[in-house]
Computed example of a mutant assay.
Amino acid sequence: MDWGNAIVKKIDKDQDVNLALTGVLHLEGSVKTTKLKLTWLPEIDELVKISLMEFDYLITKKKLEEGEDFVDVLNPCTEKETAALGDPNMRNLKCGDVVQLERKGYFRCDVPYLKPSKPIVLFAIPDGRQQAGLK
C-alpha cells in the first residue's frame, strides 16, 4: 500500500491455477491514472475468512404504475455474498464497526470474528451511486 505502481511483466499459471506474477516497480507512476489495479495479501495462515454481503433494491422500478402488481417487478437477486480473505487485524472488529476495504467500499461488521471456521460477516454500506444490479 502506498508504494506506488508495479508493472506486471509475466503471469505464470500451473494446472491448479496457482499464479505467480513477475513485475518491476514503477514508483513514479500515478495510482490515480493507472487503470488496472491489483490488491493482494500475503499467503499466511493468519488470514481470516470474510463474507462480504451486498444488497440491492427489492423492486426493479422507482415507481409502480397504477394497477401494476409489485410481484411483476420483484428483483430476483437482492443479495450477493462474496467469500474473501482479510488481514489478521480484522479479528479485532466488533459488531457495528465500519471499515473501508480498498477498491471495494465501506462495510459494517455484522458478525465479528468468532473462530477460524466461521467467516466475519461484513454488510456493504451504500454510497448513493446507482447500482447496475447484483449478479
Rank of each mutant, 00 (worst) to 15 (best):
Met53His: 13
Pro88Thr: 03
Phe123Met: 14
Leu134Asp: 00
Thr78Cys: 13
Pro88Phe: 02
Glu79Met: 15
Asp14Trp: 02
Lys94Thr: 02
Lys62Glu: 14
Val71Ile: 11
Trp40Gln: 05
Ala124Ser: 12
Leu74Pro: 00
Val24Ser: 11
Ala6Ser: 03
Cys95His: 07
Asp45Trp: 05
Gln131Val: 04
Leu52Ala: 04
Val8Gln: 00
Leu85Lys: 12
Thr34Ser: 13
Ile50Leu: 15
Phe123Thr: 01
Ile50Ala: 07
Leu64Lys: 10
Asp12Gln: 13
Val48His: 06
Met90Glu: 00
Val48Trp: 05
Ala132Gly: 14
Tyr57Pro: 00
Leu36Pro: 00
Gly86His: 00
Lys13Val: 10
Ile59Phe: 04
Glu102Arg: 07
His26Met: 05
Val99Asn: 05
Arg91Ala: 03
Lys104Phe: 05
Leu25Asn: 12
Thr33Cys: 01
Pro126Cys: 06
Thr34Gly: 05
Thr34Ala: 15
Tyr57Leu: 07
Lys62Leu: 11
Glu54Tyr: 06
Gln15Tyr: 02
Leu101Cys: 02
Pro42Thr: 09
Lys62Cys: 07
Thr22Phe: 12
Met90Leu: 15
Glu46Asp: 15
Arg129Thr: 14
Pro116Gln: 02
Glu102His: 03
Gln100Asp: 10
Leu38Trp: 03
Arg91Glu: 07
Lys62Gln: 11
Lys104Met: 14
Leu25Cys: 02
Ser51Lys: 15
Val111Glu: 13
Cys109Arg: 09
Pro42Asn: 11
Ile120Val: 14
Thr33Lys: 14
Lys135Asp: 10
Cys77Pro: 00
Trp40Cys: 06
Leu134Val: 03
Val71His: 07
Gly67Ile: 08
Asn18Glu: 10
Lys135Cys: 10
Glu66Asn: 13
Ala132Met: 12
Gln100Leu: 06
Glu81Trp: 11
Asp97Met: 06
Ala83Val: 06
Val31Gly: 00
Gly4Val: 03
Ala83Asp: 12
Ile125Asp: 04
Val121Arg: 08
